[in-house]
Amino acid sequence: MVNRVRMICQHISFVLLIYGGRLGIHLGSSLPCFACPFVNGCGGHCYLMILQRSRVGFQVTFDYLFSRAGLEVLWPFVVFLLFFVPLSKLWCGWLCPFCLFQDWITMIRKKLGIREMIFSRKTHIRLRPIKYILLVLLILIPLCIANFNLHSDWALPFCRICPAKPILPMFAGNFTHFHLDFTNTVTLCFTALSMVITGGLLVGIFFKERFFCLFCPMLGLMHIFRRLSPVRFEKDISGCTGCGNCERICPVDIHEVHLENEKKDVFMQNCMGCMHCVESCPGDNVLSFKWFGFTLFSSSRNYLSLKRKQ
């Protein structure tokens, strides 16, 4: 049930964010999801692009950044927070078009009956910092361009390697981002890297559900601010019987929810609120998503036993 509603949300959001511009809808350029600005006629922009751009992002001199005019940098961030706060990381699992694209690929894999690749808990822990490294780079590189004479071809460093950039525009009929730019070494390197990353991720996504999300800097950015949002993902540790369904079902194999036996808060770094685990938890009210204390959805034995009814 919940999964179906989630999929409908994802699809509506996909149509809105990819084709919205053609219908005259534009949600601004500070969206907390991968609504790629490179899609012609998109219905909103990803905040990461703004973050890297000159004037409104970090591609400004230090004088500017720390002057009153620096508020200009802050403004898109405030808009980003306004979008982010009510929904928190649910943006990822419920609205992000790139997440849906990954889910489509997973659906194909599941139809073919091919097994998912399982990473060990250790591997997952090792992969986690990558998204923050990317986040730091995508702020530092623009700052270097403005302050330390880094070549301007380094502009929008993350967008250049982001897999959404070649993939999402395809849905608007634009295949031009699959190319190599021979202008100079920097552009060549970036485009080549982009192709390699995109290709690698496509294979990865096929064998591992939401593979890209493991590295997504947007997810990392949102995770930092999750406390500002009224959305909470809680576990009633006194009710958990340790069946392990949550870990197995989780698209990104979060194991902490299963193992946690002290804290209430289990909104882990990689969690994007898809609620698969809540659906598969057999304990009544053990896992629950809350919004200002109001329960959005919580686990129950009944829900689980009825879920798989054909």
């Binding site: 599941k110 009956g113 097994r115 998912e116 197995r248 079902i249 057999p282 689980l304 798989r308």
Partner: peptide, 21 residues
């Protein structure tokens, strides 16, 4: 011990669901 929850219908996922259960 509870209902079996599997990720997909591949043999591995089914066996894993059973093994955990």
């Amino acid at each position: 011990p509870g209902p079996a929850c599997y990720e997909d219908k591949s043999e591995y996922a089914l066996m894993r669901a059973l093994s955990h259960r």
